[in-house]
């Protein structure tokens, strides 16, 4: 140990794997590093949205009647449809991962295309909702107007427009950041589609599909929480 503190370990790998980067010893190490990296990245995303969920919680506790009145002005049918769209896209993503692991290239390409289409459907519906809010002057800012909107379950009482503006500010920031994540996701899946089209992925190497899928599922999970929090407040009243 004194004279040569560093022992030589094994020999260099004989078969050159083009997907294996120089600083990794084996493909498993590279795959595990990428997967762990994505999981930690998702943990940071949890905290990123966490700040918003915290703000939401505070103001929902303080201004519950206004939150209910504002939620009523959203169309829960569109929200529910979008939830279903995202759930279907999560299915196509997980099928894509399966197809890649089974070397089913056609199925892989079809699933990736389906995912991208479903992503656009989601954004289209979201765009329609944004458009409606814009027309109704429910977008926070100088043009915001929320006069004489009744509080559900309290006949004769009207929502305080300032407090309503806080709800809509949170609504647009939360759904807007979610939509930005969707757009990034569509970008990632377009890249994956091009690579899959070029047959870059094999059952031995499909890490990008796996970690891209993790990201997509995470964005889906965020929406799974946003839907009841933003749309389904006092719907029964």
């Amino acid at each position: 140990m004194a004279d040569s503190p560093i022992a030589v370990q094994g020999t260099s790998h004989q078969v050159h794997n083009p997907a294996l980067l120089h600083h990794f010893a084996q493909p498993e190490q590279q795959r595990n590093a990428a997967s762990l990296g994505m999981w930690w990245f998702l943990a940071t995303e949890v905290m990123f949205f966490g700040g918003l969920f915290c703000s939401y919680l505070v103001y929902r506790l303080l201004y519950y009647p206004e939150f209910a009145a504002c939620a009523k002005t959203l169309d829960w049918r569109l929200g529910a449809t979008n939830t279903a769209v995202l759930i279907c896209s999560s299915l196509t993503v997980v099928l894509a991962v399966w197809a890649a692991s089974m070397a089913r290239r056609t199925l892989l390409v079809v699933c990736l295309i389906a995912t991208i289409i479903l992503g656009f459907v989601f954004l289209g519906i979201k765009g329609k909702e944004y458009h409606d809010k814009f027309v109704e002057h429910h977008v926070p800012g100088p043009t915001f107007s929320f006069e004489k909107v009744p509080i559900p379950g309290h006949p004769g009482e009207y929502a305080n427009p300032q407090r309503a503006q806080i709800y809509f500010a949170l609504y647009f920031i939360m759904t807007g950041l979610h939509a930005i994540h969707m757009i990034i996701g569509i970008g990632i899946f377009t890249y994956l589609l091009i690579m899959a089209w070029k047959s870059r992925y094999t059952p031995k190497y499909y890490t990008p599909i796996e970690i891209g899928g993790l990201y997509w599922h995470f964005v889906d999970i965020i929406w799974i929480y946003l839907f009841p929090l933003l749309y389904l407040i006092d719907l029964h009243k």
């Binding site: 993503v93 999970i221 799974i224």
Partner: peptide, 15 residues
Amino acid sequence: TIASVKATLVALFFM
């Protein structure tokens, strides 16, 4: 609760 069940299902089986 329902949202958490859904999120758990996605995380456990899809992820």
